Amino acid sequence: MSHLLLPLIQEFLADLVNCGLAKSTISDYRCTLHNFTRLFCGPVSEINAGILRRYLASVGGSPNNRARHFSNLKNFLNWCYRFEYITVNPICKLETPRCHAYPPRPIPTAHLELIADAIKQAEPRVRLLFTLLLETGMRIRETLSIRFNDIDLSPGEEKIIVRGKGDRLRAIPLVPGLLSLELLREKVNKYDPDQIYLFPQPGDVSQPLSYKDAGILWRQLQKQTGTRYRIHQLRHSCATHLLNSGVSIEAIQKLLGHKKLSTTCRYAQLEHSVLRREMACHLRRQKEGEAGVP
């Protein structure tokens, strides 16, 4: 990394930490800035639109990936401008790359049933982990970071407090009828006082199960069922199931911890049969209203 930019980048990343941004977000900024310094090794005051254009042209992957790099650089340069390291932000001269809106990616019902059956037959730790993901739509990192003191199983108040993106807290309700609630009660009844996390790292109960090891458990399930999906698609599947079961999109937004409703809409996919049913109900209500039916 360029010695000229290193101090600024370190200060910028330190400010992101102080703002409470997620570790994965800070890591993404760090990766973008490291890559940028491979192209440009001068002082920040000499960064211009041409240099930025060349860097963005070198970024591979999808248009969304290029847009992400653009956003990271823009925020870094905005920070430099705010602290008067530069007098103008050169990235403002460039057009913002357009992102492609991808449709929801729930796991197809037939494959989801195979995976759900495999989860039910798995050993207790795996069963609880993936049942929670499937029934609550939590992010995998949120689930792995659950501590025992985040769990409240008081009758009528059952919930888990999770730390989402930006270290924002939200409550995940656990209503009677959820298998994950039953499994959680069994786990809490066997609680070891030395255990901090609900899913501890094997050999070190003071640390949560790593994302890498959770991925290994997921791939074992995939191999067993002959399917190939990402863990995150369980979140999409949960949102889609809730939407098609009549849960409001606003309630799903709150459950998933999205700041914007538009983000939730990218997770939940309304099935065609449900859409037809809703349209039929609307027309029936309209006809009843015209006929004066109470």
Rank of each mutant, 00 (worst) to 15 (best):
I161N: 07
N64M: 14
N48G: 06
L128K: 01
Y267C: 06
F130Y: 15
Q222K: 06
G20S: 09
K287A: 11
P193V: 06
L183C: 03
E250L: 13
A67W: 12
Q269L: 11
A291K: 11
G156M: 05
F12C: 02
R219D: 04
D194W: 13
L198E: 03
R228I: 00
R277P: 01
T225S: 02
E135N: 08
P90I: 09
F199W: 05
G226A: 06
K93H: 10
S2T: 07
E290F: 14
H3G: 08
R230N: 06
W79G: 01
K187D: 01
A14Q: 07
G50R: 14
S180A: 14
R170M: 06
C19M: 10
T131W: 14
A110K: 07
A122M: 09
E158N: 08
A171F: 12
L174T: 07
W218P: 01
E46T: 04
N48Q: 06
V162G: 04
L133C: 09
D117C: 14
S273D: 10
L112Q: 09
I196E: 02
I91R: 01
L6W: 07
P193C: 02
K165N: 09
H69Y: 11
W218C: 01
V293R: 07
E271G: 03
G61F: 15
R185E: 09
S2A: 11
I115D: 01
P176N: 07
Y197K: 04
L4C: 02
L128Y: 00
Q207R: 14
K165D: 08
T87E: 15
Q10E: 11
H282Y: 05
R127Y: 05
R276L: 15
A14Y: 09
L52S: 02
P106G: 05
E288Y: 10
E290Y: 12
R168F: 06
Y229T: 04
S262T: 13
A101V: 14
S237H: 04
T37H: 08
R276Y: 10
S145I: 14
S27E: 10
P193A: 00
P103H: 15
R66C: 02
R147V: 12
E113P: 02
S58F: 04
Q269A: 10
I9T: 04
Q222I: 03
S27K: 07
C265T: 15
L181F: 05
Q269E: 05
S237T: 03
F199L: 11
Q207K: 14
R139S: 06
R285A: 06
R68Q: 09
K223G: 12
G246E: 12
L209G: 00
L283F: 13
G60K: 05
C99S: 07
G50F: 12
E123S: 11
T109C: 12
R147P: 01
D192H: 08
H258C: 00
L134F: 14
P63D: 06
N48C: 12
L234W: 02
R147C: 15
R284A: 13
I47C: 01
E142H: 09
A122D: 02
R284Q: 08
S45A: 12
N75K: 12
Y229H: 07
P155V: 05
P90E: 04
T227W: 03
I146Y: 15
Y81G: 12
P176A: 13
A49N: 04
S2E: 03
A122V: 14
Y81D: 11
L178H: 00
T227R: 04
P294W: 15
R68A: 12
Q207C: 14
N65H: 09
